[in-house]
C-alpha cells in the first residue's frame, strides 16, 4: 500500500468528527435538508420530534465536522451544508474504483497471453450487463 497522502487530506481528528457526525440519522437528514437550501435552526426543529435545543446540538456536531456552516442572520441562525466535505468520501471511493479499473485491465492483459482475448464491448459504452 502506498503511504503517500494526496493534497487536502483530512487529519485524523477531522475524520473522527465526520464519522461521528454522520453516524446519526437525524444529522444525516439535516445535511440532506440544508444541501437543498439554507434552513434556520427553528425551521429544522419543526421537522423533527425533538426539542429546539436537541436540534441545535445536532447542528453543532455537524458544524464541528465542517459538514454544515452556521451563520447568524438577525435573530435567526441559518444552517447551510458544506457539500465539499460530504463529497470527499465519494471522491475517494471513485479514485479507489479507478485503481480496480486499471487492475482489471492488467489482469485482462495477463489472460490474453494465454489466448483469452478481451471482450469486444467497450467499457465506456457498457454500463450495464446486457444479458
Amino acid at each position: 500500500m502506498v503511504v503517500d497522502t494526496f493534497p487536502e487530506a483530512f487529519t485524523d481528528a477531522e475524520i473522527d468528527r465526520i464519522f461521528h457526525a454522520l453516524a446519526d440519522a437525524t444529522r444525516r437528514d439535516i445535511v440532506a435538508r440544508t444541501m437543498r437550501s439554507d434552513q434556520s435552526v427553528s425551521a429544522l426543529a419543526r421537522g423533527y420530534d425533538m426539542s429546539f435545543a436537541a436540534v441545535q446540538k445536532h447542528v453543532a456536531v455537524l458544524a464541528g465536522a465542517a459538514l454544515v456552516h452556521k451563520e447568524r442572520r438577525g435573530r435567526e441562525q441559518l444552517v447551510r451544508a458544506v457539500p465539499e466535505t460530504l463529497h470527499r468520501a465519494g471522491v475517494l471511493l471513485e479514485r479507489y474504483a479507478a485503481l480496480w479499473h486499471d487492475r482489471a485491465a492488467t489482469i485482462e492483459a495477463i489472460l490474453a497471453e494465454d489466448g483469452y482475448p478481451p471482450h469486444e464491448a467497450s467499457s465506456s459504452t457498457r454500463r450495464k450487463d446486457p444479458r
Binding site: V2, V3, F6, R95, Y96, A97, L99, D102
Partner: peptide
Amino acid sequence: LEKVAAMGMI
C-alpha cells in the same frame, strides 16, 4: 480509504 485511494490517483 484515503491512503488506499492515493494508489488510484498515482
